[in-house]
Design a protein around this nucleic acid. Structure first.
Ligand SMILES: [Mn+2]
Ligand SMILES: [Mn+2]
Ligand SMILES: [Zn+2]
Ligand SMILES: [Zn+2]
Lengths: 150, 150
DNA sequence: TTTATTATAGCAATTTAATCTCAATAAATA
DNA sequence: TATTTATTGAGATTAAATTGCTATAATAAA
């Protein structure tokens, strides 16, 4: 399998864009992070590692990474975008606890059927889907019960 | 079934909040709109109808409507929130065309199974889910083929 | 009905994520 | 090496959303 850097390099060439140090450093860092991140935390992390890259460059690079399928946006409904690298990873969905904010990932093979049905029934060509689930994790349910019992 | 106004009135009483003209007018308008809306369009619509309500009041009222289950946020990934009234309506999901932006609603009974599985397998108590699908509608697929053929 | 209490409205100021402008720079290529 | 031009970084700008403050109106108490 091609590395993420190779994938991006090809993408960049095909479009007449440029393979820059900044883009390389940002992309490398993104694939070192094995959690969800936002622009701020990514920028801070790069800084920690002595890598000087402006937020503007991060904001400009992310759409490119997304466009070539290396990264995706994740919606945690908290007012700004989060991201994760997806290249080389299985598709998954998120469950976020409304109590503590913990995010749990899960696979859901059934959703492939949904995409299929949309294609057959409506003639849609599905590019991607995202299922976001909200609820309460076991710990927060327990905490809630105890509070109510008082 | 209780009307949306009654539902909200009870909610407001239980919490020691107040039943105001502004909130009533906003809520009424929301249930007259049978499409997705955002704060701007709602505000503009109210204005058109000679109803003077500030945007700040709309911004402050929406979380209340959401909290009592009358309204929900909808994510169209375009930089700001959209909303729709849901009280008295079946749960549905959205497919948004990446070409023309058209939003199509669809029901998907299979997703109830997903919620169930999350409860059984992870002990999660699911409050809600939202499946957002992106792809190309039949019209935009056709347009794309023609462009490529040239 | 009148008075007292306090949540809410409106307005402007503020916050903040994201985008944009522009001069300097560095990547591609001839 | 010289030329072309996409990209960078810094700060300015935009726009959605939130907040502070005072007047007001909704509710409860008298
Ligand atoms: Mn994830
Ligand atoms: Mn809808
Ligand atoms: Zn939790
Ligand atoms: Zn379309």
């Amino acid at each position: 399998m091609k590395s993420e850097l190779e994938v991006f390099r090809e993408y960049v060439r095909q479009r007449g864009l440029r393979w820059t140090q900044e883009r390389k450093l940002i992309l490398q860092k993104i694939f070192e992070i094995h959690e969800h991140f936002d622009v701020d935390s990514l920028h801070w992390l790069l800084k920690q590692n002595g890598v000087k890259v402006s937020k503007a460059s991060i904001y400009r690079a992310l759409p490119l990474f997304i466009d070539c399928g290396l990264v995706r946006e994740v919606d945690f409904s908290d007012g700004h975008w989060h991201y994760e690298h997806i290249y080389g990873h299985k598709h998954h969905n998120h469950m976020k606890c409304l109590g503590c904010g913990e995010v749990r990932e899960f696979e859901e093979p059934i959703l492939a059927q949904v995409d299929q049905r949309l294609t057959q029934e409506y003639g849609y060509s599905v590019v991607f889907h995202q299922l976001e689930v909200r609820g309460y994790c076991p710990a927060c349910q327990k905490a809630g019960e105890e509070t109510r019992a008082r």
